[in-house]
């Protein structure tokens, strides 16, 4: 079976700075959840953004769902991948001029060319699944952060993606709002979604992750099972990071 994501020796630098990604290799099997951890500025966002072509690569080989996404950065390949990979951002990035329902149905109608009725029906189902069906007619500015982030998840799911990418989805939320978003992600993982999640939520990682990847200064420091990583990290740098977190 084709791995969901297969990356070998990814290199990326911005200008003449130190490399944001330095020879990163990893792979994610279909149905697995990979949690990416690491200090701020270690390259987590850059890494996850290469998986749907938001960042181009300088070197290395990357295949997402069997589609190559190498340094040549072919626009058509990227759009093929984006239709099959969903992404959720730290700042939600909902479209403020569209209602919640329109936020979710925009891509199904415009990209997948589904009939409006069908797209709206599915959007309501997703909102119900996220526990916010009653918000469908409102606008993003009227919702709390936790609600907005659940809408963002529903918006990504509306395209029926095979992989979901999350970049610190709970970091911009009030503490009491974090749980509702993590719960939604947990049930997604339990239903077999392939996920790559950048997060600092240790209990979530421990419970949901199949593997934890720890990054520092653009390099992969270690990749372990969550039990091993949190109880007994192999590398000194990982242990220092975890000590600060807990």
């Amino acid at each position: 079976m084709i791995p969901a994501i297969q990356a070998t020796g990814l290199v990326k630098s911005f200008g003449d700075h130190q490399r944001a990604l330095d020879e990163v290799s990893l792979h994610v099997e279909s149905g697995q959840v990979l949690v990416v951890m690491g200090p701020s500025g270690s390259g987590k966002s850059t890494l996850i953004r290469t998986f749907n072509g938001l960042e181009s690569l300088d070197e290395g080989r990357l295949e997402v769902l069997g589609i190559p996404l190498d340094a040549d950065h072919d626009e058509r390949q990227i759009r093929r991948i984006r239709k099959r990979v969903g992404m959720v951002f730290q700042q939600f990035n909902l479209f403020p001029h569209l209602s919640i329902l329109d936020n979710i149905t925009l891509a199904p109608i415009r990209v997948q060319r589904r009939p409006r009725k069908e797209a709206e029906g599915r959007a309501i189902d997703l909102l119900t699944q996220m526990g916010i069906a009653e918000q469908a007619g409102k606008y993003p500015g009227q919702l709390s952060g936790g609600q907005q982030q659940r809408v963002a998840i529903a918006r990504a799911l509306a395209l029926q993606p095979e992989i979901m990418l999350f970049d610190e989805p709970t970091s911009a939320l009030d503490p009491e709002r974090v749980k509702e978003v993590l719960d939604a992600m947990r049930s997604l993982a339990n239903n077999g979604m392939t996920m790559v999640v950048v997060t600092h939520e240790i209990s979530f990682a421990r419970e949901v992750a199949d593997r934890v990847l720890f990054m520092d200064e653009g390099k992969v420091v270690e990749t372990s099972s969550p039990d091993e990583f949190f109880a007994n990290a192999r590398e000194e740098r990982s242990r220092r990071f975890l000590n600060q977190m807990m």
Binding site: L54, R79, N93, H97, L106, A107, V111
Partner: peptide, 23 residues
């Protein structure tokens, strides 16, 4: 980030301008 959020949904550059940016 608005353009990125639209691009990630698979919208074409023209659709991004027309549906997300210009309004």
């Amino acid at each position: 980030t608005q353009r990125e959020a639209a691009a990630v949904l698979g919208l074409s550059p023209k659709q991004i301008i027309q549906l997300v940016v210009l309004p």
